[in-house]
C-alpha cells in the first residue's frame, strides 16, 4: 500500500505538498527509495508498466524508420515480439511500405519473413528495390484455408529464426489471439495482421490505422498513421508520415 501511495505522490506533487509540508526531508527520502523500488519492479516484471507514459515502457522497441512514428509508439518503435494490427481500409495505402525499414533490418539479420496467404503475389523487383533479401522471403499460397493459415502462423511465430510473420486474416477470435500471442512470446517473433476493417474490441495489444493524409495537395508518399491502441496511451495518437523518405 505504501508503494502505491508514494507513487501517487510522485506523479501528483501538489497533493503531497498539501499534506506533508513540515516533514519535507523525510518524505523526499522515502520518495527516492520508493521510486527506485518502483523502477526495479517495472524492470523486473514485464507485465507492469506505467499507465500514461508512452515513452517509458521498460523496453526498447525496434525503430520504425520514421522518427514521427517512433515518438508515438511505446518503446520508441515496433515491439521486439508480439502481435500488431494494421488497419487499412483499401489496398495500396502504404501499409507494407510502413514496415519496409523493419523488414530490411530483419533480413539483414539473416532472419526470415513469412507471408501467409497474401491477397496478391508479392512483386519481387519491388522487394529488391526496397532492399529486402528475397531469398529470405517465404510465401504461403493465397488459397490456404483460414484454419491452416492460423496454424502456420502459430508454428512460424514459435520458430526462432522467423523474424516476422505477415498475415491477412479477418477471423481472429480471442482464443486464437491468445495462442498466437503466447507463440510470439516463445519465439520472440513479431506477427503482423493486416485488416480491412478495424473492430472496436480487438484484443491485440498494438493497433495502428493507416489513412490517406489530410493535406489537400495529395502527395504520393504522404500518409496518416493513427495509433489506436498501445501500451501507455489512453487516446489515439496521430502523426503524418512521408512514407518514401527512407529511400
Amino acid at each position: 500500500m505504501t508503494i502505491i501511495r508514494s507513487a501517487s505522490a510522485s506523479t501528483e506533487p501538489n497533493i503531497g505538498k498539501a499534506f506533508n509540508q513540515h516533514d519535507m526531508s523525510s518524505t523526499k527520502k522515502t520518495e527516492d527509495t520508493t521510486c527506485t523500488q518502483i523502477d526495479q519492479l517495472l524492470q523486473r516484471n514485464p507485465n507492469l508498466w506505467r499507465g500514461c507514459n508512452i515513452t517509458d515502457q521498460g523496453f526498447q522497441g525496434l525503430s520504425t524508420g520514421f522518427p514521427e512514428l517512433d515518438d508515438i509508439l511505446p518503446g520508441q518503435g515496433w515491439p521486439q515480439s508480439g502481435l500488431v494490427e494494421i488497419i487499412s481500409r483499401h489496398w495500396g495505402m502504404g501499409e507494407l511500405q510502413l514496415l519496409i525499414p523493419l523488414m530490411r533490418s530483419i533480413s539483414e539479420q539473416g532472419q526470415w519473413i513469412l507471408w501467409i496467404a497474401p491477397p496478391y503475389v508479392p512483386y519481387a523487383p519491388a522487394l529488391i528495390q526496397a532492399g529486402i533479401d528475397i531469398h529470405q522471403v517465404l510465401v504461403i499460397k493465397q488459397d490456404t484455408s483460414c484454419k491452416d493459415a492460423l496454424w502456420s502462423m502459430e508454428k512460424a511465430l514459435k520458430a526462432k529464426d522467423c523474424g516476422m510473420v505477415l498475415t491477412w486474416q479477418n477471423w481472429l477470435p480471442g482464443k486464437v489471439l491468445r495462442r498466437l500471442q503466447l507463440a510470439a512470446e516463445t519465439g520472440e517473433t513479431l506477427g503482423i495482421f493486416f485488416k480491412r476493417k478495424g473492430s472496436k474490441y480487438s484484443q491485440l495489444p498494438l493497433r495502428l490505422q493507416i489513412k490517406d493524409s489530410d493535406s489537400k495537395n495529395h502527395q504520393f508518399s504522404a500518409a496518416e498513421i493513427t495509433v489506436i491502441k498501445a501500451r501507455g496511451n489512453f487516446r489515439p495518437l496521430t502523426t503524418q508520415l512521408d512514407l518514401y523518405s527512407q529511400k
Binding site: 503475389v121 508479392p122 512483386y123 519481387a124 528475397i134 517465404l138 510465401v139 504461403i140 499460397k141 491452416d148
Partner: peptide, 13 residues
C-alpha cells in the same frame, strides 16, 4: 506436411 508440398512458395525475380 500440413499444407502440401506446393503450398510453400518463394518469390523470385
Amino acid at each position: 506436411a500440413r499444407l502440401g508440398f506446393d503450398s510453400l512458395k518463394s518469390v523470385s525475380a
